[in-house]
Amino acid sequence: MDPVTMAAGSALVAAMATDAWQQARDGMVALWRRIHPERAEQISGELETLRGQVLQAREDHDPDTEQSLEGVWRLQLQMLLQRDPQAAGALRRVLDEQLAPVLNQGERERAYSVIQNTTVSGGTSYVAGRDIRQEPPTPKD
């Protein structure tokens, strides 16, 4: 899954619990309106429902439900980008300009922590979310 999609899904769910949730909703609806206009109003309604679900999960101290909602919206965003891969830049702008600014520092760091960029030229790179174990090379005779 695209890292921007993952970050945007996390940020969207977190933003729904803020006072600026309408700004987050409007940014997402505008994105849908551009790529998939026939679904924009439906998405607006789904985002209203999402807000209620996020608020209920937080009231119930239920992080599992909140994580599940993130997964659902990550898939929604992934399908949107599959329809128009060129929209990744627009999604990144919604993330950077409308979702992330309304989050507290911890939520912002959590959303962006899924984005990794690695460039390797003429060598080997190992990227992992946790530990890497590697056996030492066998000596050549």
Rank of each mutant, 00 (worst) to 15 (best):
L95K: 04
L80R: 03
Q86N: 11
R93N: 09
I35L: 07
A40Q: 07
Q56M: 07
S68F: 11
W73N: 02
H36R: 13
Q98P: 09
D64F: 11
R39N: 11
L81N: 04
T65V: 09
A88N: 11
D26N: 00
A24M: 02
S68C: 10
D26C: 00
H61Y: 13
L95Y: 05
E48Y: 09
A24K: 00
V54N: 00
V29E: 01
P37L: 12
E38G: 14
V72I: 15
E97P: 10
Q78A: 15
D19P: 11
R34S: 14
D96H: 11
Q67C: 10
L80P: 02
P37V: 08
D19L: 12
R51N: 02
V54G: 01
Q78C: 09
S68H: 15
P37I: 09
A57E: 01
L81Q: 05
V54A: 01
Q22F: 03
A30E: 07
L75G: 14
R92P: 07
P37K: 10
I35R: 08
W73L: 01
L47V: 02
W32P: 06
Q53E: 13
E70C: 13
D26F: 00
L69E: 03
L77P: 03
Q98D: 13
I43C: 09
I35G: 05
E66W: 07
A20T: 04
L77H: 01
R51T: 00
Q42C: 09
P63A: 06
Q56V: 05
H36Q: 15
T49C: 08
L47N: 02
T65K: 11
Q42W: 12
D60E: 12
Q86I: 09
A88L: 12
A88S: 14
Q82N: 15
E97I: 08
D19I: 09
A57Q: 03
D84H: 13
V54P: 01
L81C: 05
Q23F: 08
I43V: 15
L55E: 08
L50N: 03
V29M: 03
D62P: 06
E41P: 10
G89L: 07
P37H: 07
R74L: 06
W21V: 02
S44N: 14
L95A: 06
D96Q: 11
A90S: 11
R93G: 05
L95E: 05
R34K: 15
A57V: 02
I35K: 03
E46P: 06
R74K: 15
D60T: 07
A40P: 08
L55W: 02
E97G: 10
E38A: 13
D19T: 12
A40H: 07
R25S: 01
W73K: 00
G27L: 03
E46S: 11
D60Q: 13
G52F: 05
E70D: 09
R25K: 14
Q82E: 15
S44I: 06
